[in-house]
Each structure stands twice: as C-alpha cells, then as structure tokens.
C-alpha cells in the first residue's frame, strides 16, 4: 500500500510522456494582438484548427480532432449558458478557462484510468483596447498561462514553441496590418513544422515565404485557417474567418 502514491506519480509521468508523444505530429497554431483586433492562424483541411467561441472569444488548437471538438463544445456550452443566464458581457476568457476548461483538463489528466485529452490550446479574447486583449495558453494537463495581448504560440514541444514566440515578438513589433502579421505567423508556422531553428540557422526570409506557400498550396491537403476578432464593429459578434485572398496572401 505504501508504494501506491509512487505508482500514481509514475503513472502520471508516463501519461505525460504518452500525451507529448501523441501530440508530436500536431501542427502549431498562433495568435497575435494587433491594433484593430486579434489574428489567429492555423493550418488544416477546413474548419479544424481555429474556431469562434463567443462574441469576443476564439479558440485555436492542435491535437486529436475528437478531443479538440469536446473541449470546443464544452467552452461554447459554458459561454452561451453564461450569456443567457447573466449577460453576454459576463462571458470572459478568464472565467471560461479558470473555472471551466482548466479544471476539466486537470481532472481528466489525473484520472489515470481514463483516456487523456490529446490537445494543446490557445485562446484569445479581444478587448476594447489592445492592452485589454487576453491570450491564454492552455495545456493538456490543465495548466495555463494568460498574458495581456502580444503574441502566443501553441506547439507540441515547449522549446520550439518558446523560440517561435520570442522570434515573433521581435518581428511583429510595430506591425499593424493583419496581412503583414499573417505572413509572419505563417512563416513561423512553417519553421516550426519543418523543425528548423529560430536562432542561428533560421532559414532566410525568401525560403520561409516560399516554404509555407508550398506547404499550404491551394488545392492541397491543408489550407490556411484564419480567425479574426475585430476590436470594433456594428454587431456584438466580432469573429470572422477571413479568406487567404481577403488578406492578399
């Protein structure tokens, strides 16, 4: 009996390793806060990576489609119930993640006899001003990190994710147009997917530009998925999914 806690710890560690291994082939998703809103970018066969959650909230993720779908649905259910029973203004990312998705993921991850969620998530909430934007990085074990605006990346491995985020913070400084931001985000997407470094040995810009365009060529298996949370607009719902052509990519 005395060794049971150690078995549990070992089981959790094995589980973590298993989830990371399963996520290894997942393609990253990225988000950037801009003066006019928040841009989310992913690559998939359709509506598979970037989703609208509520009026000002969106989700992007990688992992098993069924798990992504369950969590997306749980977040949408919670947001709409909250909006209906209280008010749309009461729906906030902080509460959706902190009191909804994060405990759900943590409880699932620590129940070692159930299948774990194979997901890595990135959530965004557009505010009245760029300083009020919220980006949240939510992990498969329920751990999360929130930041006001800026850039955020969700990838299957932590080190390349951090490197991509640091690189993007530099190159996106001063970028205001969403088309230009999308170009940088897609370059980072390609570098991550090609398993190339962001420091020394970073492919030249021409190679990066050509790289993501070749990987996501129109008519191919995967296409560019874009989500846009507009800071201002005539309607409460601020999310749109611009096409590649609309952004001139």
């Amino acid at each position: 009996m005395t060794e049971e806690p150690y078995r549990w710890l070992e089981a959790v560690a094995n589980r973590r390793e298993y989830v990371r291994d399963q996520l290894r082939g997942g393609t990253p998703v990225l988000a950037a806060s801009l003066p006019d809103g928040i841009l989310l970018v992913g690559a998939g066969p359709g509506q598979a990576k970037v989703f609208e959650l509520f009026d000002r909230q969106a989700l992007a993720g990688l992992g098993h489609p069924a798990d992504l779908e369950r969590l997306r649905q749980a977040a949408i259910d919670a947001a709409h119930t909250e909006a209906f029973t209280r008010a749309p203004e009461d729906v906030s990312l902080r509460r959706l993640v902190g009191y909804g998705l994060s405990p759900l993921l943590k409880a699932n991850f620590e129940q070692i006899f159930t299948a774990p969620f194979l997901v890595e998530l990135l959530l965004a909430e557009v505010g009245a001003e760029p300083a009020a934007d919220v980006l949240v990085r939510l992990h498969f074990d329920g751990g999360f990190r929130a930041q006001p605006g800026g850039v955020m990346v969700a990838a299957s491995l932590p080190e390349p994710e951090a490197a991509a985020q640091a690189w993007l913070q530099g190159v996106l400084a001063g970028v205001t147009e969403r088309a230009a931001a999308a170009e940088w985000l897609l370059q980072a997407w390609w570098v991550l997917g090609a398993n190339r470094p962001f420091g020394e040995g970073l492919p030249a810009e021409a190679e990066r530009r050509a790289g993501w365009r070749a990987a996501l060529a129109p008519g191919g298996e995967r296409g560019v998925e874009l989500g846009w949370l507009a800071r201002r607009g005539p309607r409460a719902a601020r999310y749109t999914a611009p096409t590649r052509a609309e952004l001139g990519l």
Partner: peptide, 21 residues
Amino acid sequence: MNASPPMAGDFLSLLAAQKLA
C-alpha cells in the same frame, strides 16, 4: 460544463438539461 445537449446544437435542450428552461 459537462452537461451536453441531447440534440446537437439545440440551445433549448442545453438549457433544459441544466434546468434553466
């Protein structure tokens, strides 16, 4: 958070499942 509607996409079912009709 866990109550899913019996009919996919039907908000009234979701409300009923949570006793919020």
